[in-house]
Nucleic acid binder design. Structure first.
Lengths: 356, 356
DNA sequence: TTGTACGCGTTATCAC
DNA sequence: GTGATAACGCGTACAA
């Protein structure tokens, strides 16, 4: 590892020109099987691999797709949410299928700006998760690199490709279930951060369902839990202080629901007997809670996959009109809404990992 | 985005040479603030960023560190284990601090070989998690790129840098706790995959502690759960069929412990009253189990961080002797071992100021 | 302070 | 089938 070997050395040692070496490494044609074997042998002996930089420069393609996700480390809010991991996995999977690798970086409006641009300069295409970049910067980068936004924006802000999940519909299905199956009438919505597109979409779905059922809805979420477990706990604690106990507490995500469950248990309020509690996301822990949490599954893995596929398609096919895809969400009924479903701690053995 | 703009265009438009543009983008010196502003303005207008490939070629550094992790998708075993995510996060963090990004790829001995080499060709240094590459390939790649192995190998196989966690010591501490505090005498060990270095290390720790306590130990794990939840369930189910109920079931990881808890509950066997159960890893769900799981925390995040720091150091300082660092693990005592610790589902609410 | 020109390691287009 | 050789886009002595 003293010096990285180059194509020149391989060419010299195998007695051919660099052009031939290049051809061989390209798995193309235009050489005898004898020379191929010779070249391959030398390359292997030297442990040589074509330089990614040089190759990228010549081919004008790096074989890398970038993924920017929001970084909340060290913030009051919490560390980066768990669903990011799923997105990363899905992205990796889709990229690998096409022979690409994924370049990841956590960025936030301010801090990661440089990093974001640096990543953009190294990739063929870029997937940007919500809240990891300002719209401004997003647009700038979009000028030079194919970008797909991974988010649930209320309004398609730009002419970029976009993929997201049906947050609104999922929440609607959830609330409908609560109202129809469990005769809930007084529902409370615990929202996330004020400006979170996800939170807004989910609340919108909440309102739609409530209005559809002829129920009264407030203009804003009844409480704000910032999408965190402590936040959810706090929100419900305040509710309790006001001696308010609704039929159901609809939390904007699972983490807040976990917090809610905690304070309710300590207050000796039974779930779901006294009050129903629901979440959103279907993170891993939901199955193991007491009671298991009714929630809405977001196809994070598939979102990552789809985003990468989309951006990869855009790399080769720079057509005109922006692509937009919305993946559907799925109501996951467990115990916390009042349903009497059988708990199956090991039922996921065939649920995942086969999205080949 | 019709054509990616280049340094030439920026130079032309701002009326300077490419050298000057290069200097400006390098944040270096050697130009008047007037020209700098002009160049920056043009660059911004065009949304131009220096090409990563060209820059990497010229500088002989890409600003990318690679991370290879094992891919078990589609296998009987399960999808890639969750701790990988933490490692990725830690790696990203450490890399970002140094202005680098992380290129990830899931690989396995056979399938991902090409991808692995492709990644290797694009990075300044490479972190390789256990079981994602054959020793053979690892060595080959190590010839041309700084590599650090992230694993817990019984024996330092090569002359590569290595970072790992003290699996053995962690298990020892766990078993000591079980024996000393809870007077367990008949302990059963549920192992992971046969050839897993992690599983082997943990079992080694198990044996050491047992021998130290003058207890009888078998040569091999009493059962194999393949590190999966269903696997753990199966292992314990078999135990039960043999009408065997030990004092404690020491699981090689948390997932198997979750499976174990499930079948025990269905068999009406009380944990920890009738039998103690422990895990390893301290994944997120452990806190929410009934009972909360006593386990050993592995500093996955820190491992990822440390590995990247190590490899980054090696990039600039190609010294001779291989570096080796072992991070310590931590016994996390909860309810499932028999301890009467207070369960605090939201105990992290005061961890970050709640002066609401 | 600024410009010229060569080199970085590959690929791709010609010729042969 | 194979070999010169010109890009590819940028960094960086060396000059000016």
């Amino acid at each position: 590892m003293v010096e990285r070997s180059t194509i020149y050395e391989v060419a010299r040692r195998s007695g051919v020109s660099t052009a031939t070496v290049s051809r061989v490494m390209d798995n193309g044609t235009g050489f005898s099987s004898a020379t191929r074997d010779r070249v391959l042998a030398v390359a292997n002996e030297l442990g040589w691999v074509p330089s990614g930089s040089a190759r990228g420069l010549a081919r004008r393609r790096t074989g890398i797709v970038g993924l920017l996700f929001p970084d909340f480390a060290g913030e009051a809010e919490q560390e980066s949410p768990l669903y990011v991991d799923q997105v990363i996995r899905g992205a990796e999977r889709a990229a690998a299928t096409a022979g690409n690798a994924v370049l990841i970086a956590a960025t936030r409006s301010a801090s990661g700006r440089d990093l974001a641009f640096s990543v953009a300069s190294k990739v063929d295409g870029l997937v940007v998760m919500a809240r990891s970049l300002t719209d401004q910067d997003l647009a700038t980068i979009g000028q030079n690199v194919p970008v797909v936004a991974l988010a649930n924006r209320p309004e398609p802000a730009s002419d970029l490709d976009r993929v997201g999940a049906d947050n609104r519909g999922g929440t609607r299905a959830l609330v409908d279930h609560l109202v129809d199956q469990h005769r809930c009438r007084d529902l409370v919505f615990v929202g996330g951060p004020q400006r979170s597109p996800d939170s807004m979409e989910r609340f919108a779905g909440f309102r739609e369902a409530m209005r559809g059922a002829g129920l009264h809805v407030r203009q804003h979420p009844d409480a704000c839990g910032g999408f965190t477990e402590p936040g959810g706990a706090r929100a419900v604690a305040e509710l309790l202080e006001q001696r308010r106990l609704p039929d159901a507490i609809v939390c904007g995500n699972d983490e807040m629901a976990i917090g809610a469950l905690g304070v309710l248990k300590r207050a000796k309020i039974k779930v779901p007997a006294d009050v129903a509690v629901t979440g959103f996301d279907d993170i891993a822990a939901t199955r193991h809670l007491a009671p298991p949490l009714t929630t809405v599954r977001q196809p994070m893995y598939e979102l990552g996959q789809c985003a990468v596929k989309t951006v990869l398609a855009r790399v080769t096919e720079r057509s005109a009109k922006p692509h937009e895809v919305v993946l559907s969400t799925e109501l996951v009924v467990r115990r916390s809404c009042g349903c009497r479903v059988r708990t199956q701690p090991t039922d996921n053995s065939d649920q995942k990992g086969n999205a080949a």
